[in-house]
Write a protein that binds this DNA or RNA. Sequence first.
DNA 1: GATAATAATTGACCATGGTCATAATTATGA
DNA 2: TCATAATTATGACCATGGTCAATTATTATC
Lengths: 194, 194
Amino acid sequence: MIKQTQKRSIETRAKLIRVATEAIAANGHSALRVEEVVKNAGVAKGTFFAHFKDKDALMELIIGAQINEYLDAAEAMTAPDDVDELITRMRPLMNFMTGERYIFDVIVRHSGAAVKEEIGPIAQTFDRTIEIVSAWIAQGQFRKDVSEVLLAEGVQAFAVQAMALHFCAINNQEEMHLRFKTYLQAWLTPTPTK
Amino acid sequence: MIKQTQKRSIETRAKLIRVATEAIAANGHSALRVEEVVKNAGVAKGTFFAHFKDKDALMELIIGAQINEYLDAAEAMTAPDDVDELITRMRPLMNFMTGERYIFDVIVRHSGAAVKEEIGPIAQTFDRTIEIVSAWIAQGQFRKDVSEVLLAEGVQAFAVQAMALHFCAINNQEEMHLRFKTYLQAWLTPTPTK
DNA sequence: GATAATAATTGACCATGGTCATAATTATGA
DNA sequence: TCATAATTATGACCATGGTCAATTATTATC
């Protein structure tokens, strides 16, 4: 019962992704229409859904790839020494994620995998972010009373919170990063006096 | 330019909300259909959208009201002394929020207000949660190096994170609360040894 | 190379949220 | 009480994502 994937199918799928990526580059994520994609790819509508469970699945794929580009860039940098540098490293990615409300919604919706065996592209980038950030934290001047993985998970939680509040009111991106900084200082370099 | 709202309009709106609430009680949030609501309310489809910007706006209203019931219950309790008690206080609300994937998505989508002047029902409950939790934290045995409001915002960030990961894989709710506990211990009672 | 088996594609059709010009109702005021 | 304005309701219509039985293309078998 092994399904033999034909070359034709691989090409069709690639064409759909390419066409969709181009459309997004031109008009933004939220403006993408399935009809438009299949028309420009020269296939029928049903073909689209034979390749992707739904429109969201394709978006997840594309956004996941975009996030990975930012993570590549982040990974290429030196480990941050302090909170300020950590924020600088994450800034481009956070700006991308909040560049369009639609993007952020898709990301949040897919930040957790549906099934353990089948972890989606965006959930994968969350895992990868944890890896990268925890490796950074292990090298920097941060608290040592809890594991760096836990700290990295917290960084992610605060990043999501800062981004969610970014869409609140007329907050601009600079405010978002400031808020993020306040969180991280309290999280990564606490000085409790109970 | 003051719009005079007629009694008829108020009644129609109330009927739509009541009918929708009943339908949700019977079949769950995600199964709600606008067609069904207008049919049972005895009005035309267009009327629905004259009263609510979109289906999401009604959902926000109803879910916001439900959250407020949980907050009422939480507020009636004594302030928690430690992390365990804090989690106990928040447990029913978090269980509700994760009871249906659809509910959580709606909540996250509306956790930030669109405009400062017009803060939505769910965003209001987030504010209220911050108030309640920060008041609790001020009274309990928690770190004092940062403001209780900041700590409360962190509690919320970690709650969202724990809930998002809950949908990941086959994690059950117990695991969610355990994860939440780990976060909160590190956040609220740090013992750094830099 | 004929035939059977499997994979891939098709497009008419459906489900459902949302729009808007028009009609019906209610308030206003002389 | 009637004319006029303002408010509310209507439902045909549209936009768009998604389904599925039927069809076509490819591969395997002899």
